[in-house]
Amino acid sequence: MKMHRLIGAAAIVAASISLTLVANAGTVSYQIVDDGIPKSLTGTAGNAQAGRKVAYNRKTGNCLACHKAPIPEQQFHGEIGPDLKGVASRYSEAELRLRIVDSKKTNSDTIMPAFYRDTGFTRLQKKWVGKSILKAQEVEDLLAYLMTLK
């Protein structure tokens, strides 16, 4: 059975129990359960220190473009999204994982990019074809950092 048919079948079964299986060409597949992705994308625990860097590095997460966060040594925090301070008290790890992986799954009109999606784009620049903004382990590192923001 071809992969996409397997996914299709899984999605039909899944729909009834509020679970969707998503698979992208260059990214690992994951399951959405209710409002989150409960399982780690990599199985390797995230590193909060590395994740903090992903949050401010303009070439990777650049979350500070839109969010304030307790990263005082970095100048210029954006004011487009909510402050990330205290975000771990508002959301579970699974919910945060979904919001980083593909925030459009929770709000189809959001400006926030899907950080772990590699298909479905319009006029993508060649060098990004088949790529997601973040790699799976970067997502897990970022999550480990967000979970420290109680």
Binding site: A65, I80, I111, P113, F121, R123, W128
Partner: peptide, 23 residues
Amino acid sequence: RRGLLDMACKHCHEDNAGNKIRA
């Protein structure tokens, strides 16, 4: 919406005019 960041002009210039995007 366009590109890997998947944003339309309206996301920045209609929904967020007046807000800071980084600096």
